[in-house]
Design a protein around this nucleic acid. Structure first.
Length: 567
RNA sequence: GGGCCUGUAGUGUAGUGGAUAGCACAUAAGCCUCCGGAGCUUAUAUCCCGGGUUCAAGUCCCGGCAGGCCCGCCA
């Protein structure tokens, strides 16, 4: 709704400016506490026209012509600002559209195909609390883009032939594999032991190199051993992802690009640019003209490919299938992703859009799978689930255990996802058990509670024969401040979705979802609904509660968080 | 040593160069005997430091300081 309003405002103001001979310009539209939308265009024009911005604003306001069917109610110049207000029709239309469009409300305004790659952690152990920042950002972005209207295919790029996997494969034949544990956890156990062993006996590293050469040359037996190792880890990782409502459409194996010949083809293409040279036996690409001091190694001295080389082939392939290719990567990939983009550019291939998030560390330092220093996602979910159960039990002691367990799982995962997604990706964070288990912090449970509250109000009204969803209602009686504020908040849905989709910033949407719940609670606090005296007030307010239920459910779905009807 | 990111109340965070720096936790004081109290209201900030650009800087530029990440044959 707000997107249409903004569009109309843009047209009206540009028309007015043209009629004054100012031409059109960036209107500097901004949300404002003084209006539904404000324009600072007068500031811009002031320096250009060498006139007082206040006078310019006044002239523009006077020149505005509002069409009959507009959502714009008024344009007012306040000092140098142009304050625009939405009219009653805008509010009424918002309410009726939410109820007619339900889960499609506020979305579907984009089109195109996107490949989103996220998580892609090495299959050498379980996901830890750092990896899931990638998963949550990637999955939330996917949901945002899908809701905005894109066709999104999600990829998990599986490193099934790198050095680390060679170590895992080697480890499986040297150490006992504990089958009583979740398979990815057992993989980490042997991987950690193998690394310690290799550190103590550096001469054994040659065995790893040998494995890598064998797998690169397509040796059947070695490939099978690698596949087995990778299979154990990936199975466990998938299970963990599923717990947090994350599912990838495709798991793409790196080795496929070596076997298909795509890797050697792309190496040839890079060579053809004349940018390559042999440095100490390795093949490197000179990217100085792209601003990279150091050249990029794309082939080892022994002729085997590197992660980067295979990644180039993978990106070439992705670029052929979608208009937009998005990668969610940790901050450690900043340099390498820049070099990857430059190399793709050098051979005339489309470059991915890279979303970088900063690291999650532990109070005692950074995490490391190799050294066994990490907190697994599974452990976090278990602890959070237990704590959530305690909280549910405290509030709904009369409910059966089954109910408490279900709600605890939904609330626990929701709390974890929300805590991660609400923070801007460029901030590094420190994992803290006390905070992770603190449900008093307003986050997902607050939004879920608001949704459950709306559901419960409607259920109660229905039970008392006061509510029938099919009743036609008159939204224009919703005139209380808290009602109007809440309707406007819901109308913002498309605008926030659009901004987070354009800027690839999921935290903007997360913050909006909380504000939405906040706004609903304020409405409910100040206005009687079931106990309203007039029937038309009661019906319209119940319809507004129904809107809250719909929009809150949509927001939670977009965040990948469950929306229980009771909790 | 070089590059990139971050630095906002006790803590955690939001904030496209513009109108009173928004929110939560913790703390304190309240709320129609409340239609779900996991709710609502109120109180608490020299925006790391120093310069600069601008009519206007938390936001842009330069220099510090602190933390994170990276700097070829790992991924």
């Amino acid at each position: 709704m707000f997107l249409e309003f903004k569009q109309q405002v843009t047209l009206i103001l540009n028309d007015a400016m043209e009629s004054l001979g100012y031409g059109t310009d960036d209107l500097n539209l901004e949300p404002s506490q003084h209006a539904d939308i404000a324009s600072r265009v007068a500031f811009r024009l002031a320096s250009k026209l060498k006139q007082n911005p206040k006078d310019i604003a006044e002239r523009i306001a006077a020149a505005v012509v509002i069409p009959d069917d507009s959502y714009v109610d008024s344009v007012e110049a306040v000092g140098p600002y142009l304050n625009l207000r939405a009219n009653r029709r805008y509010l009424d239309e918002t309410v009726s559209r939410i109820r007619s469009e339900t889960d499609g409300f506020g979305g579907g305004f984009c089109e195109g195909r996107i490949i989103m790659e996220h998580t892609s952690a090495n299959p050498n152990g379980p996901l830890h609390v750092g990896h899931i920042r990638n998963s949550v950002i990637g999955d939330t972005l996917t949901r945002i883009l899908k809701r905005a209207g894109y066709d999104v295919d999600t990829h998990y790029y599986v490193n099934d032939m790198g050095r680390q996997i060679a170590i895992v494969s080697w480890a499986l034949s040297h150490f006992e594999f504990d089958t009583s544990k979740k398979s990815d956890h057992s993989i980490a156990d042997v991987y950690i032991k193998a690394n310690a062993e290799l550190e103590a006996h550096p001469e054994k590293v040659a065995e790893i190199d040998r494995l890598m050469q064998l797998v690169e040359s397509g040796d059947e037996e070695t490939m099978e051993r690698f596949d087995k190792a990778v299979g154990f880890a990936v199975a466990g990782i998938k299970e963990t992802l599923l717990k947090m409502n994350v599912a990838h459409d495709t798991f793409v194996n790196e080795s496929g690009f070596v076997r298909s010949g795509a890797v050697s083809r792309i190496v040839d293409e890079i060579k053809a640019t004349g940018r390559t040279e042999i440095d100490n036996g390795a093949l490197v690409v000179d990217l100085l003209s792209y601003g990279f001091e150091k050249s990029l190694v794309i082939q080892r001295t022994d002729g085997t490919s590197l992660y980067t080389t295979r990644d180039l082939a993978y990106h070439e392939w992705k670029g052929e299938q979608a208009e937009r290719v998005i990668d969610v990567l940790g901050a450690d990939h900043k340099l390498i992703s820049g070099q990857l983009k430059a190399t793709l550019n050098a051979i005339g291939k489309p470059e991915p859009e890279v979303v970088i998030f900063e690291f999650v560390s532990l109070p005692e330092g950074s995490m490391s799978t190799r050294r066994g220093k990490f907190i697994t996602a599974d452990e976090l979910f278990e602890q959070v689930g237990e704590q959530a159960f305690v909280e549910v039990d405290k509030r709904r002691p009369e409910m059966p255990d089954e109910f408490k367990k279900d709600v605890a799982a939904t609330v626990g995962i929701g709390a974890v996802r929300y805590d991660i997604v609400k923070v801007s990706p460029e901030k590094s964070t420190v994992f803290n058990w006390k905070e992770a288990l603190d449900f008093e912090k307003q986050g997902a449970p607050f939004i879920q509670y608001s949704h459950a509250r709306a559901c419960s109000i409607l259920a109660k009204a229905k039970e008392e024969g006061l509510w029938n969803p099919a009743t036609t209602i008159d939204p224009s009686v919703l005139v209380e401040d808290s009602e109007v504020t809440f309707i406007k908040k819901m109308a913002q849905f498309d605008n926030v979705l659009d901004q987070s989709a354009r800027e690839l910033k999921p935290h903007i949407f997360a913050i909006y979802a909380r504000e939405l719940a906040d706004s609903f609670n304020q409405f409910y606090r100040f206005v009687p609904v079931i106990s309203a005296e007039e029937e038309s007030d009661r019906n319209s307010r119940l319809a507004l509660v129904d809107c809250a239920r719909i929009v809150l459910a949509n927001a939670l779905e977009t965040l990948g968080i469950g929306a229980p009807e009771s909790m």
